[in-house]
């Protein structure tokens, strides 16, 4: 006897598929922003479901800052190859030429050039009008008001006052001349939903999400993993091996690890059920100024 009721994950899955199909159907030239993290893994998984039996109707775009964890890059290339995806990788030529360093030049400047500017460059280069990303509303306070379909002006900037009311599921991926739209199919998902879905659907994610002994150094209360020798140790700092994992993955010198013994998806879920802290607390770039995430969004940061 069928009850004709969808459980939470099935309802979220259906909503996300609906959003992905709307974005693709309405866009002239859509792209999926692929950041290699768990949300991107879920987004990619949902996109493949949304368009089966057809192939993905859009390419993936990864903005490579050259400071991503090596494990992330190998996971990205393996995924693209196994799933036969069109993957575009873009790096800021200016950032490389100027040798912009996340610590030496400050997180803010680094993020602007290597992430925000690079993303805008790539979107302009390929003339994408709709960019689909994996951001969730529960990640951070200013994202609670982010639209599922979010309008950006010709400079890719976000103005809270210019956002459209969202009525029912009548989203529009169309915008005015020169404007573009960011689409967030995972808006209604929580971090726990994402992990439960990864568990149920057996979705591959970067192994850095699971606890393992890793070389770390403690700096300003944050555990930084030393992915190569570009960071440079401060006086008094000594690398040590600790059992850590990551709740969120970004550029390695800017992403704090958490001490944990959760070494599998099941254990991560159990750990999360007891967690209260915001997952972005490991992101140093959010802490440099009041309302910093909102500022970055206004500038065009994904």
């Amino acid at each position: 006897m069928t009850s004709y009721v969808l459980d939470t994950l099935a309802a979220l899955e259906a909503e996300s598929i609906h959003i992905l199909r709307e974005a693709a159907a309405q866009a002239r030239s859509p792209v999926l922003l692929y950041s290699i993290g768990k949300d991107s893994s879920v987004l990619l998984h949902l996109a493949r479901k949304a368009f089966a039996p057809a192939p993905l109707p859009f390419p993936l775009l990864h903005v490579d800052t050259t400071w991503k964890f090596r494990e992330m890059i190998s996971f990205r290339d393996r995924t693209a190859k196994e799933l036969d995806l069109r993957l575009l990788v873009h790096t800021s030529a200016r950032g490389v030429a100027e040798g912009i360093h996340p610590v030496e030049h400050g997180a803010q400047h680094y993020t602007r050039v290597m992430k925000t500017e690079a993303l805008k460059e790539a979107l302009d280069l390929h003339r994408f009008d709709v960019a689909i990303g994996g951001a969730r509303r529960d990640e951070e306070m200013s994202r609670a008001k982010e639209r599922v379909f979010s309008v950006r002006d010709r400079h890719h900037q976000w103005d809270p006052r210019r956002q459209r009311p969202e009525l029912w599921n009548l989203w529009s991926a169309r915008a005015g001349e020169g404007e573009s739209v960011r689409v967030f199919p995972l808006s209604s998902w929580t971090e726990l939903d994402v992990w439960l879905y990864i568990l149920v659907e057996k979705i591959p994610v970067v192994p850095l999400y699971f606890a393992a002994p890793r070389p770390v150094v403690e700096r300003g209360g944050t555990l930084l993993m030393l992915d190569d020798d570009r960071l440079g140790l401060l006086p008094g700092e000594a690398p040590e091996t600790r059992m850590v994992r990551f709740r969120t993955l970004g550029c390695w010198p800017l992403t704090g690890a958490v001490e944990s013994t959760a070494a599998s998806v099941e254990e991560v879920v159990l750990e999360l059920v007891g967690a209260h802290r915001s997952e972005r607390q490991g992101r140093l770039i959010d802490h440099d100024e009041s309302g910093s995430m909102e500022l970055k969004k206004r500038e065009g940061y994904f």
Partner: peptide, 21 residues
């Protein structure tokens, strides 16, 4: 609240979504 513009104005200007279970 949530957005800076609102903090400045001291009022909430738009729909915000919160999650709990």
């Amino acid at each position: 609240d949530g957005l800076k513009a609102e903090r400045e104005q001291g009022i909430t200007i738009d729909v915000a979504y919160r999650y709990f279970g």
